Computed example of a mutant assay.
Amino acid sequence: MSTIRRSTRATVAGAALVLSVTLSACGGGTAAPTAAPTTTEPPVSAPADAGAQHNDTDIRFAQMMVPHHQQALAMAEMAVERAESPDVKALAEQVRAAQDPEIATLNGFLESWGIQPMDSGMDHSGMGHSGSGGMMTQGDMDSLGAASGAAFDKMFLEMMIVHHEGAVAEAEREVAGGANAQAKELASQIISGQTAEIERMQQMLA
């Protein structure tokens, strides 16, 4: 009788040992998935860290490009209302659709860097296009406002080409010397988008 009990106890102990080993093995198999998400955390937090980095080139880019875009919008709005050519009107709509949201993005950069955003009501007309990123003078804007018909279309295209060339030059400076990844990405988009529009406007003039 005692032999049977000892045998039974040995069997139960052996079964418990096997169960313990089995559970340990199962536990080891489920540990890997729970550890995996920790390896994905650095890439998620990296963009936020990179976004905090900026230098003087980034600041110049944002501060120059906001009034630059604002003037382009003023020109585009004139063209939407007054251009004779449907193609010029369509181009003006494209300029407005692209640059209006970029102003908010650029001011968002400045705000995140602890710098006062550019006031949309500021008068930037005194920034002539010579050495100032293609900006038009107030005289240029007045001349455009006084034109009509085909003469308006021609003047608008000529002025917007110079304006875009200035924007591309500013964006190229940002790509070359900026430190903020998001600002550099926006600059790259400006280069590609406005270069394509310059080619389109040159074809319209031809």
Rank of each mutant, 00 (worst) to 15 (best):
S2E: 07
T3I: 05
T11C: 01
G14M: 10
T22W: 03
A25R: 10
A25K: 05
A31N: 09
A31S: 09
P33S: 06
T34D: 03
A52T: 10
A52V: 03
N55V: 13
R60N: 14
A62Y: 01
Q63M: 14
P67V: 03
P67C: 05
Q70L: 14
Q71Y: 04
A74P: 01
A79D: 09
E81L: 08
E81V: 06
R82D: 13
A83G: 14
P86S: 14
V88F: 11
V88M: 08
V88S: 04
A92P: 09
E93A: 11
A98G: 09
A98R: 04
Q99N: 06
D100Y: 02
P101R: 01
I103Y: 05
I103R: 03
T105I: 05
L110H: 01
Q116K: 00
M118T: 12
D119I: 00
S125W: 04
M127I: 05
G128W: 00
S130F: 07
G133V: 05
M135F: 07
M136F: 12
T137C: 00
T137S: 15
G139I: 06
G139T: 07
G139R: 06
L144V: 13
L144N: 12
F152K: 13
M155Y: 12
F156A: 05
A167M: 09
V168L: 04
A169L: 10
E172Q: 15
E174T: 10
N180I: 02
K184H: 00
Q189K: 07
I190G: 10
I191G: 07
I191F: 04
G193T: 14
A196F: 04
E199L: 04
R200T: 13
R200G: 03
R200H: 13
